[in-house]
């Protein structure tokens, strides 16, 4: 018996593909943002609001990733974004190879910011680098303030956490300060914005964040 030593990470190939995607976006002065959350937290509604706020300033593309259906892509297109619907073939997450396929099919020439709306799931998407420059997690009020304690990894890898459905705060036992404390325990540098996508409230800091990061990306490209 001969033993061949590999000693390589199982995610190595994915990391290489992801780095390639990041380099491509960097070279073009564009941004890719990976949005993760539980099912039903308001990812699509939040993206629709974000597109509204950026209308005429930033061109937005969205890759909708679901196990089935195309309702989300239709919603995005009806609201002025460029969209493509990817079916993950039963997989619970997106990886960099799937992202690349989606980008090639959608085309990013007429897009400044491309969002990946990842499969609704707080576990698996956090493990796989999609090639996005920024990870965002949406935590909605009805889910409860304990989610960062229960699913820490997705919060650890997220630069931004949007606490959504703030309009429902009176109905649910959701402690905003406790949620923030738990998010910061996962990632002390996380930027946390409280929003209501339904009521269109609290979007300014999030929109400013997007604009300033896009500006940085464009500045790097022109250097």
């Amino acid at each position: 018996m001969t033993i061949l030593e590999l000693k390589q990470g199982i995610f190595k190939e994915n990391e290489v593909t992801a780095d390639g995607i990041r380099e491509e976006f960097k070279a073009k002065g564009k941004l890719m943002i990976n949005v993760m959350s539980s099912p039903g937290s308001g990812k699509t509604t939040t993206l629709v609001r974000t597109i509204e706020h950026l209308k005429g300033i930033v061109r937005v593309g969205v890759m909708e990733c679901d196990i089935d259906a195309s309702v989300d892509a239709e919603t995005i297109e009806a609201n002025g974004g460029k969209a493509i619907q990817l079916h993950t073939g039963g997989m619970c997450h997106m990886d960099a190879a799937m992202t690349k396929q989606g980008l090639d099919a959608m085309g990013i020439e007429d897009v400044d910011i491309c969002f990946i709306e990842n499969v609704g799931n707080l576990v698996c998407p956090a493990e796989f680098d999609t090639g996005a420059a920024i990870n965002v997690t949406i935590l909605s009020v009805p889910e409860g303030d304990d989610k960062p304690a229960k699913y820490p990894l997705v919060y650890e890898v997220s630069e931004v956490v949007l606490i959504n459905k703030m309009d429902a705060i009176e109905i649910f036992d959701f402690d905003v300060e406790l949620a923030k404390k738990r998010i910061l325990a996962c990632n002390p540098n996380a930027k946390i914005f409280c929003i209501s996508s339904k009521k269109d409230e609290g979007f300014e800091p999030w929109i400013e964040f997007l604009k300033s990061r896009l500006k940085e990306a464009e500045a790097i490209q022109h250097e």
Binding site: M1, T2, I3, L4, L6, K7, G9, A185
Partner: peptide, 21 residues
């Protein structure tokens, strides 16, 4: 303290394969 971070333990590696000579 809660100012702690994981040193190791989230690895997922292929160590080796065994083949007939």
């Amino acid at each position: 303290s809660e100012h702690t971070y994981l040193l190791r333990g989230n690895e997922f590696n292929i160590k080796e394969i065994g083949v007939d000579d």
